[in-house]
Computed example of a mutant assay.
Amino acid sequence: MSLLACLRGAKKGSASSVVVDSARGRHDLRIDGLSFAVGALAPIGQSVASSAFSVGGHRWRIKCYPNGNRADSAGHVSVYLALDEEPAAGEEVTAVFEFALLAERRAAFFLKKSKEVQSRPPLRHSFTSQQRNFGYRTFAKRDALVKLPGADKGDSFVVRCQIVVINGFRTEDEEDGAPKSGANFVTVPPPDLHRHLGHLLDTKKGADVVFHVSGKTFAAHRFVLAARSPVFDAELFSGMKETDAAGVIRIADMEPGVFKALLRFVYSDSLPEMKKGEEDAMCQHLLVAADRYGIERLKLMCEENLCNYITVHTAAIILTLAEQHNCSGLKRACLDFLKAPANLRAVVASDGFEHLSTSCPSIKKDLLDALAS
Score class of each variant (00 low, 15 high):
Glu85His: 04
Val288Met: 05
Ser14Phe: 15
Thr311Asp: 03
His196Trp: 02
Ser359Ile: 00
Gly247Arg: 00
His76Val: 04
Leu368Asn: 01
Val48Ala: 12
Ala207Arg: 07
Asp253Pro: 03
Arg137Met: 09
Leu102Ser: 08
Ser328Glu: 15
Glu273Ser: 09
Met1Trp: 10
Ile317Trp: 03
Ala370Asp: 08
Ala178Ser: 13
Ala5Lys: 15
Thr138Trp: 00
Ser14Ile: 11
Gly75Asp: 01
Ala89Trp: 00
Gln46Lys: 13
Leu368Ile: 12
Arg124Trp: 03
Gly57Arg: 10
Gln130Ile: 02
Arg170Ser: 08
Ala342His: 14
Val55Ala: 03
Asp32Asn: 13
Ser51Val: 08
Phe169Arg: 08
Leu262Met: 13
Tyr65Arg: 00
Gln46Met: 09
Leu356Trp: 09
Asp192Gln: 10
Ser328Phe: 08
Leu148Ser: 02
Met1Gln: 13
Gly277Pro: 06
Ile310Met: 06
Val79Arg: 07
Ser357Tyr: 05
Asp21Ser: 10
Cys327Gly: 03
Thr203Ser: 15
Val188Ile: 09
Ser50His: 07
Thr128Glu: 02
Val213His: 09
Ala23Cys: 12
Gly182Asp: 15
Ala82Gln: 14
Phe53Trp: 00
Lys216Asp: 05
Phe127Ala: 04
Ile251Ala: 01
Ser119Gln: 11
His199Cys: 10
Arg250Ala: 14
Gly150Asn: 11
Arg105Glu: 13
Ser2Cys: 13
Thr358Glu: 10
Lys147Ser: 14
Leu3Glu: 13
Phe139Asn: 05
Lys241Ile: 01
